[in-house]
């Protein structure tokens, strides 16, 4: 009898306690950073990273040139975009049997906001363009060039090489000049670009069916090769600051 009373008591207590509500009462949101807080590094994590960093730096820590000015990424124009797309054009021209008119690079493909003035490491080129994108050349007709440039205009402007300028009007490309001549002066244009775009990336589906003159080289390797050749010839890196998209 006494036992039953205890059971009953326990049962009631359990029943009463099982219905509990957790009401969201207040939410505070902050964004923390390590700057100025004298945060130490977690030693075990640093130690764990060490061997990976050492292995990587054998190749990535090598200085391959001297950047004459700090490169900054911005839309529609930037010295970073000019330099990068100019290198793509130079290398496409150097390695292709047929002339290349201009080069483009999708804006999202450049991954760091700045490249510092001064010694340039191989690793920085990897950070700038880390993707396994290949450099390809496409033969585009006038209509396809217009579509590609409209896509670039709609995206707020991507890096484009020397030899081409245009104006963005209502998210379309107008006043297009290629080697100083209006688009349509000739029928076909040879355009260097990452295979990511040629394969339809960034919604460039219209390029997908076109045959590719494929260098078979990753874009970052193309840029590194360009820098090596400059260094061997004792030539400086040059950066053009002209405004190509208006």
């Amino acid at each position: 009898m006494f036992k039953n009373v205890i059971y009953a008591f326990v049962f009631v207590a359990l029943f009463a306690s099982c219905k509990t509500y957790n009401h969201i009462q207040q939410t505070d949101v902050v964004y923390e950073n390590t700057e100025g807080k004298n945060y130490t590094e977690d030693a075990s994590i640093s130690e764990f990273i060490g061997p990976y960093r050492d292995e990587m730096n054998i190749e990535m820590g090598v200085v391959i040139g001297e950047m004459p000015e700090t490169l900054r990424k911005s839309r529609p124009n930037s010295n970073m975009g000019n330099w990068f797309s100019d290198v793509l054009l130079s290398e496409a021209q150097r390695t292709s049997a047929r002339a290349v008119d201009f080069a483009i690079q999708n804006y999202g493909g450049l991954r760091i906001p700045t490249v510092a003035k001064g010694p340039l490491k191989v690793g920085t080129i990897y950070e700038l363009m880390p993707f396994d994108n290949l450099l390809v050349i496409l033969d585009l007709n006038v209509n396809q060039v217009q579509m590609l440039l409209d896509k670039i205009a709609d995206g707020g402007g991507w890096p484009i090489s020397r030899n081409i300028t245009f104006t963005i009007q209502n998210k379309k490309a107008t006043n297009i000049k290629i080697k100083g001549e209006a688009l349509g002066t000739k029928k076909m244009y040879r355009v260097a670009m990452p295979d990511y775009i040629a394969n339809g990336g960034d919604n460039c589906d219209f390029l997908k069916p076109l045959p590719q003159d494929n260098s078979g080289k990753f874009i970052r390797e193309v840029v590194i090769e360009h820098l090596r050749l400059l260094a061997e010839a004792n030539k400086p890196i040059t950066v053009d600051n002209s405004k190509r998209i208006n």
Binding site: N22, H23, I24, Q26, T27, D28, V29, Y31, E32
Partner: peptide, 15 residues
């Protein structure tokens, strides 16, 4: 660069 930090307070009650 940042670590997002959210504190959520819950009121535990029978109500």
């Amino acid at each position: 660069i940042l670590l997002g930090h959210i504190d959520v307070y819950f009121e535990r009650s029978k109500n």
